[in-house]
Design a protein around this nucleic acid. Structure first.
Length: 617
RNA sequence: GCCGGGAUAGCUCAGCGGUAGAGCAGUCGAUUCGUAAUCGACUGGUCGUGGGUUCAAAUCCCAUUCCCGGCUCCA
């Protein structure tokens, strides 16, 4: 064994080893003969962390079996931020159970029980787990094709597992059980509901603490909490679940975003539309929505004995706009944009603040173009999307191409042509992407862009979808150079996705502290005492007449109290006026973060505000 | 939709069989104040909704609506 390797092992920095590219238990070291390519896996690496967490999941299952012998174990993988294990238990785990399990886990860890790997035949394994009463493991075994399987034993607890694992339980330095939840066996809602325990583990206590702090930060930024605190939106039980009521502060934010969106769309060669919220049921039959989207649509309503349907999408209306005139190839591409409010049925358990609602406004557009124009149009949409997103400070993305789902319309050939157009456009823009197989919409493949927010969390907003099918269903055409009728291709796209979700994400991204151009109140004027009310009012009027959103606070309160109120409302600028300011005919500006106190002339302040707003800083 | 937890004043929450509470907010009064909470008084609740058990229910039981954490599904 190389000296360096021996040293690392001694210092307990290794938890697994890669031999000729294959991850193995550390115990494989004793079989090495020296000519293998090896790599030490420490818990700091992605692979190492996964092994650590998976091992902690085993230890948790061990603890659960010790405390609740009747419970059956199922599966327990490592996940993005930790691990979970699903158990079949008649009554759910309680908070107290979690504490007991943690305690038992600490005991197991202290014993430094080795993880021992054994390879046995599948039949042997089935017999073993049958004897242990672990029917879920037997079910898994029956689905495994290999003749040999591996099991791991640690302190008497045996689990079917591919491995690898940490050498012994004592290597777990920092873990915490986080929550309990119901989860279906194999993720299928027709199966039995199991009891899942979520937990996490890290190489060190500090890293665990950092993660717990992150969870706290996430809680603090929760848009539902901030939305209430900052009076941005409300969901009323009296109105109905998943239906958003924009309060004045939220309405201003939304209006500002809408204005920006419309202006930029006009600049980018789009034409703006408004279309109705309902349409005859027959329209939805023709579009294919009734066949392929029915479960998300509300029941139709009767008007003069004809069925009408609340719209779940805007596309059929935009098709009507296309059809309102004869189109020539000279007209294409045609770009129709609308902030279109749609209604979709969402199961009650999935609703979530602004992020998942039943009525929402898509920043929708449909581009009609020729086959030759398709790729360039997609590139333009990509550029436009990234411009809009970067305005809000989103500069990191994960891009996915979703391919044909099980339920689809149109020919496979068309699907493939559309998919390759999407790939080609991303390639030309040097944008790396991943494939999300089978996740396309029923009418075509799509590019989804997931943005990373200030906490590095991913959110799906933008979507660009090619559609060969709806143009066909509505038989829309254009007259080509050759004088013949041709069928245009349609691109559906939404950049922010929906205003509701996007603003929800913005609240969390900015932690409620909106940049000046979006802030509901941009400047709050506060007087030191009653003597300065007139001057404060004068400043207020001056700022207001210059188009700023200003609040005047001339209450009989101490300045400290007023500053506290404004800070809690996350107002970008506070203007403080007292004796000094009146005398010098100036103002003192305090930024939201408490820095940059300065006495300046009002004209100078107005100039800097305008600069900040125009540049959307 | 499924599993579990919850709903008490505008907000945050305590009370968990025996007369509905606190802080903040609001109103009124005093204070006239220089960078994150001045003091006092007052107001405010059919304890989510509907049934039931009990001498007595915010509290226990059942149903229901909505919310929360997950699962499944998604802009």
């Amino acid at each position: 064994m190389p000296e360096e390797l021996e040293k690392i092992l001694k210092e307990n920095q290794a938890i697994a080893i890669k031999i000729n590219g294959e991850i193995k238990d550390l115990s494989y070291v004793s079989y090495l003969n020296g000519d293998e390519e090896i790599e030490i896996i420490s818990p700091q690496t992605k692979e190492g962390l996964e092994i650590l967490r998976h091992s902690v999941a085993h230890i948790m299952a061990h603890a659960v079996k010790d405390l609740f012998p009747d419970v059956k174990v199922t599966i327990g993988p490592a996940i993005e931020d930790g691990f979970y294990y699903d158990f079949d238990k008649d009554t759910p785990f309680t908070e107290e159970d979690l504490q007991k399990i943690e305690k038992r886990m600490h005991e197991i860890i202290k014993l430094k029980q080795p993880f021992i790997r054994k390879e046995i035949s599948k039949d042997e394994a089935i017999k073993l787990f049958e004897a242990l009463g672990e029917s879920y493991k037997v079910e898994i075994l029956n689905e495994i094709k290999d003749e040999k399987v591996s099991i791991y034993e640690e302190g008497g607890f045996i689990d079917l597992c591919r491995g690898p694992h940490i050498p012994h339980t004592g290597m777990v330095k920092a873990f915490k059980l986080l929550s309990v939840a119901g989860a279906y066996w194999k993720g299928d809602e027709r199966n039995k509901m199991l009891q899942r325990i979520y937990g996490t583990a890290f190489p060190t206590k500090e890293e665990l603490q950092d993660y717990l702090n992150f969870l706290e930060e996430v809680k603090k930024r929760d848009h539902r909490r901030l939305g209430k605190q900052l009076r941005i939106f409300e969901i009323s039980e009296e109105v109905g679940p998943g239906l958003i009521i924009w309060l004045p502060n939220g309405a201003i934010i939304r209006k500002t975003i809408e204005d920006f969106w419309k202006d930029e769309h006009l600049k980018a060669g789009y034409q703006l539309l408004y279309t109705p919220h309902i349409a005859k049921l027959d329209l939805w039959k023709k579009s294919g929505h009734l066949d392929f989207y029915r479960e998300n649509m509300y029941s139709p309503m009767d008007i003069d004995e004809i069925s009408y349907q609340l719209k779940p999408m805007n596309c059929p209306f935009h098709i009507q706009v296309y059809k309102s005139e004869l189109r020539s190839y000279r007209d294409l591409p045609l770009r129709f944009a609308e902030l279109g409010t749609v209604y979709r049925y969402e199961r009650s358990g999935v609703l979530h603040g602004l992020l998942r609602v039943r009525g929402f406004t898509q920043d929708d557009a449909h581009i009609f173009c020729t086959e030759e124009q398709l790729e360039e149009e997609i590139q333009k949409v990509l550029d436009f999307t990234l411009f809009i997103l970067s305005t809000f400070g989103f500069n990191l993305y994960d891009i996915y191409i979703s391919t044909r789902p099980e339920k689809y319309v149109g020919s496979i050939e068309n699907w493939e042509r559309a998919t390759s157009a999407l790939k080609e456009a991303l390639k030309k823009r040097d944008l790396p992407y991943q494939i999300d197989p089978g996740e396309g919409v029923f009418y075509g493949p799509k590019i989804d862009i997931k943005i990373k927010d200030a906490l590095n969390r991913s959110w799906q907003c933008s979507t660009i979808q090619v559609d060969f099918n709806i143009p066909e269903r509505f038989e829309i055409t254009y007259r080509g150079k050759d004088g013949k009728e041709h069928r245009p291709i349609m691109i559906h796209r939404a950049l922010m996705g929906s205003l509701e979700r996007f603003i929800g994400i913005l609240i969390e991204h900015y932690a409620g502290a909106f940049p000046l151009w979006l802030a509901p109140v941009q400047v709050e004027i506060m007087s030191i005492s009653e003597k300065h009310v007139d001057y404060a009012t004068k400043i207020y009027n001056q700022l207001r007449s210059n188009g700023f959103r200003v609040k005047l606070n001339i209450e009989n309160e101490k300045i400290g109290y007023k500053i506290r109120q404004a800070s809690m409302n996350k107002i970008p600028y506070m203007v403080i006026v007292g004796e000094k300011e009146v005398e010098k005919n100036a103002i003192t500006v305090r930024k939201r973060d408490g820095k940059n106190l300065e006495l300046i002339k009002i004209e100078e302040f107005i100039e800097s505000l305008n600069d900040e707003i125009i540049n959307r800083k």
